[in-house]
Amino acid sequence: MTAPSRAEAAATGSRSGGPAGRTGTGRRKPRISFRHRASAWDRRYSPYLYISPFFLLFAVVGLFPLIYTIWVAAHDWDLIMGQGEFVGTDNFAHVLGQRAFWISLRNTLSIFILSSAPQVVAAILIAYLLDYNLRARTFWRMGVLVPYVVTPVAVALIFSNLFGDRFGLVNSMLETVGIDAVGWHSGVLPSHLAIATMVNFRWTGYNALIFLAAMQAVPRDLYEAAAIDGAGKVRQFISVTIPNLRPTIIFVIITSTIGGLQIFDEPRMFDQYGRGGADGQWQTMTLYLYELGWTRSDFGLASAVAVLLFLLIVAIGLVNFVITRRISSSEVKR
């Protein structure tokens, strides 16, 4: 309400030609009408207004929880009783001194590598097949997305039955071929392989579609030129398709890094207890966090793990970022 009245005052001031209005340098200022001011404000501030929903939402659902988690991590904090004493970095020191923490870090990285690496390779190959002029193209393309639509818990239930130690289908098949049964729930690497299989089942098709979209953006004349130069299909794939996919590959690697490091549903559903095995064989960082926070109801420790996990993801994200920059700058040079 004050703005228009001030503007009015300014307007009348200039009309009546008061002493302030006449004196040299200050003269232009009062002449600006409200319309001008409004449009200046519009130009200056409304872009912020337009983008503000994102930042407001981000502040509420992203930034606030992040800072609050750090706050909780610095306190003795019971799930039910709430905030306790301020303990500074004690929670971090305690967590870093636990064998279980380092085991969970090992498991997280191992499952992440076992799932992400084959996933990206398989997704590119599937996308390459789908890029051809197949019959019933839409059917195949939607088909690869079906595993993604199934809820992860259902996937985990089915797979943990397949990977049963005694009577699971996978072990029965191995035994008919003459290979010893594998202790999917007792060994470290077997359990990671089984969980990585679930993750790959779920995400490969999704990533394949992203690659497919990128592949279709590759100019077809590049392939024609390559064909004229005598390049076979394999050579075309390696020398034309892959280089053009680089940015997409990096995007997929970043998203699967974030997803892979936060993996929860699959290991949680892998056995009946959901704690990650009697020896923590497949206890990932999120499962460890859950155990501290919900089973032991120590939110302080759980938050400390959450912050450490965040730092780990940021660190790996930075590595990705450096690689991204290197690749993009090398392309510019080319």
């Binding site: 940015p247 995007f251 970043i254 991204t324 690749i327 993009s328 392309e331």
Partner: peptide
């Protein structure tokens, strides 16, 4: 998801100036 979307936009824009 939101941050990754941005990453996509950035990388794509950077890669194909």
């Amino acid at each position: 998801m939101r941050t990754t979307d941005h990453a996509e936009e950035n990388t794509s824009a950077a890669a194909h100036p």
